[in-house]
Nucleic acid binder design. Structure first.
Length: 270
DNA sequence: AGTCGCGCCTGGCGGC
DNA sequence: TGCCGCCAGGCGCGAC
């Protein structure tokens, strides 16, 4: 499940292989992803140069003069850089073929991912309402505290809302709330400013750390399986329901919030 | 406006 | 060993 660190690791992995390179072909074997892959992409990128490879939230943006190719990895998507001519396997839905003999291949068994097009000068609907980048200065305690006032929704669901802040998925929401010592069920509007200060710091730290760990797989990005992995043994709570809290030894509690697993320490998180 | 629940999809797993 | 049913979850969307 790619979260922001995995997406950023992926972006860094493909960037050196396609930046400033020209597109030779765009192959869509399966257009039924989260949304149909739009036809307009082909004419807008064929023979054109990649100007930059950027990221907004969990979208990777491959930028051209005419607009941006938007790639979202959904739940099970991954991008790999492969030599041109590599036979596609099951679930290899889209190839961006470059003139340098390499291709970027989207593999996505569950097809929750998407490949979209944002024309130059237009903001795609799916990017229009996104909140600040968690690692930017725009994401700070004043912003988050203000945004949380009068909100009854649980703090965990609040920080997972993309209009509030992008890129905080289930794993890192669980982890950062544990590190900040906040009960994930607490209404967002009732969390003090002091606690938000701590939470902002922990969110940034946990994401930054995960990016540095993901970076260790970058060396082998070309023709490796390219999947930035989690270091499960480094997670404090996620996937550890019923096990002992690494801080106090209490039994970690597992509940469901909005159809997602929440794991927390009833003693450390108040 | 805010909140809630649905559904998209397939691999993997537990149970029998 | 095989089959069945369930679960995982990012996230937009419709309903209230």
């Amino acid at each position: 499940m790619p979260e922001l660190p995995e997406v950023e690791t992926t972006r860094r992995g493909i960037e050196p292989h396609i930046d400033q390179q020209h597109v030779a072909d765009f192959v869509v074997r399966e257009r039924r992803l989260r949304w149909p892959v739009p036809d307009e992409i082909f004419n807008n990128i064929l023979e054109k140069r990649v100007n930059s490879v950027e990221r907004r939230g969990k979208y990777i943006l491959v930028r051209f003069d005419a607009g941006d190719l938007m790639v979202h990895l959904g739940m099970s998507g991954s991008l790999r850089v492969l030599p041109q001519g590599t036979e596609p396997a099951k679930h290899d839905h889209v190839d961006l073929v470059m003139k340098n003999g390499l291709l970027v291949r989207l593999t996505d068994p569950r097809r929750f991912g998407s490949v979209l097009w944002q024309p130059k000068g237009e903001m795609h609907k799916l990017l229009a309402k996104l909140g600040p980048e968690p690692l930017s200065d725009d994401f700070n305690v004043d912003y988050l505290f203000k945004a949380s006032r009068n909100r009854s929704v649980a703090i965990k669901q609040f920080i997972m809302t993309s209009e509030v802040v992008v890129g905080v998925g289930n794993i890192y929401a669980n982890e950062s709330l544990f590190k900040a010592g906040i009960d994930p069920r607490k209404p967002a509007g009732k969390v003090s400013k002091q606690r938000y200060e701590r939470l902002v710091i922990e969110i940034k730290q946990v994401l930054e750390y995960a990016i540095t760990r993901g970076g260790t797989t970058l060396r082998d990005f070309l023709s490796s399986d390219g999947k930035p992995g989690y270091f499960a043994q480094e997670l404090s709570v996620y996937g550890r329901g019923g096990e002992a809290c690494k801080s106090c030894g209490s039994n970690l509690k597992e509940i469901r919030q909005g159809q997602r697993a929440t794991v927390f320490c009833p003693r450390c998180q108040r």
